[in-house]
Computed example of a mutant assay.
Amino acid sequence: MKIPRSTAKRLPLYYRCLAEMRERGVAVVSSQALSSKAGIEAAIIRKDLSCFGELGKRGVGYNVDFLYRAVARILKVEERREIVIVGGGKLGQAWVEYMARYGGNFHVAAVFDGCPAEVQAAPADVPVLPLEELSGFVRDRKIELAVLATRAEEARVLAAELVRAGIRGILNFAPVALDVPDGVQVIDCDFSGKLQSLACSLGGSNDRVALNGR
């Protein structure tokens, strides 16, 4: 079953909200209550969850424990998933540290960099390897997910190499659009672009853009 991309983006949020409710002993939750917790419209939540069958009862709501377990199965949180990080600079190193603490079922199998000897922050159990070994490593380990934390001028070439090796999902931190074939998912994490969008959203309702010198 192919999950709509917009739904897939929201499922981890539902999972975190349900985990917190479960810990507090909440037995049943309505879509409206989950909406207040997640900050997503109740109608969208109902539509997302309906993709996976009858997970709740009209007029009653959702059994929190049942829904938590259902979403956990959909997200495969019990399944160990290996990823590779391409780019061992400060951002790549920060990602290794983050994954070691909060990665859950995701495990960094290796970091790849053009100058592996200069990468210092990787834990002892995470090898730092040269880019020349990237394709073979990904192919041999059947890894499907990669974090791309390189310079923009390198990103497209490395993304193409990752795809040829079998990568199906890329978390892209390079400030460049990647050209990937159908069936490969890319999530762009351009910090500068996100800040620009955030700053733009702070503008007042009376703001006007001057065009043609007016």
Score class of each variant (00 low, 15 high):
residue 120 Q to D: 10
residue 103 G to W: 09
residue 165 A to F: 07
residue 102 Y to C: 10
residue 172 N to A: 03
residue 150 T to S: 12
residue 69 R to D: 13
residue 100 A to E: 15
residue 186 V to W: 01
residue 110 A to C: 09
residue 190 D to I: 05
residue 182 D to E: 15
residue 143 I to V: 12
residue 197 S to V: 10
residue 100 A to Y: 08
residue 93 Q to M: 15
residue 77 V to A: 02
residue 133 E to Q: 15
residue 195 L to Y: 01
residue 153 E to N: 14
residue 158 L to E: 01
residue 94 A to E: 14
residue 111 V to K: 08
residue 162 L to D: 00
residue 96 V to F: 04
residue 66 F to T: 13
residue 67 L to C: 10
residue 139 R to P: 00
residue 114 G to Y: 04
residue 162 L to A: 02
residue 109 A to I: 01
residue 107 H to W: 12
residue 181 P to C: 04
residue 81 R to F: 02
residue 104 G to F: 02
residue 161 E to Y: 00
residue 114 G to C: 01
residue 174 A to F: 07
residue 193 G to E: 09
residue 132 E to Y: 03
residue 123 P to L: 06
residue 177 A to V: 09
residue 141 R to G: 00
residue 105 N to R: 13
residue 181 P to Y: 02
residue 137 F to L: 06
residue 153 E to Y: 13
residue 134 L to E: 01
residue 190 D to N: 14
residue 149 A to F: 04
residue 78 E to I: 00
residue 84 V to Y: 07
residue 184 V to K: 08
residue 88 G to Y: 06
residue 119 V to P: 11
residue 73 R to F: 05
residue 156 R to W: 00
residue 94 A to N: 14
residue 90 K to I: 14
residue 194 K to Y: 12
residue 144 E to P: 00
residue 96 V to H: 03
residue 180 V to K: 09
residue 100 A to P: 02
residue 100 A to M: 15
residue 116 P to L: 08
residue 138 V to H: 01
residue 105 N to V: 02
residue 123 P to Y: 06
residue 88 G to F: 09
residue 183 G to Y: 03
residue 82 E to G: 05
residue 125 D to L: 06
residue 74 I to L: 11
residue 78 E to R: 13
residue 100 A to I: 01
residue 79 E to S: 07
residue 165 A to V: 02
residue 65 D to I: 03
residue 147 V to H: 13
residue 146 A to C: 11
residue 192 S to Q: 06
residue 135 S to T: 11
residue 143 I to Q: 02
residue 164 R to Y: 02
residue 128 V to E: 11
residue 139 R to K: 14
residue 97 E to I: 12
residue 172 N to D: 04
residue 74 I to Q: 00
residue 151 R to F: 06
residue 170 I to C: 05
residue 68 Y to N: 09
residue 183 G to L: 05
residue 146 A to F: 10
residue 168 R to L: 13
residue 127 P to I: 11
residue 92 G to A: 12
residue 124 A to N: 06
residue 72 A to S: 15
residue 141 R to Y: 05
residue 157 V to K: 14
residue 71 V to I: 15
residue 101 R to G: 14
residue 115 C to Q: 12
residue 69 R to Y: 02
residue 94 A to W: 07
residue 125 D to I: 04
residue 77 V to L: 11
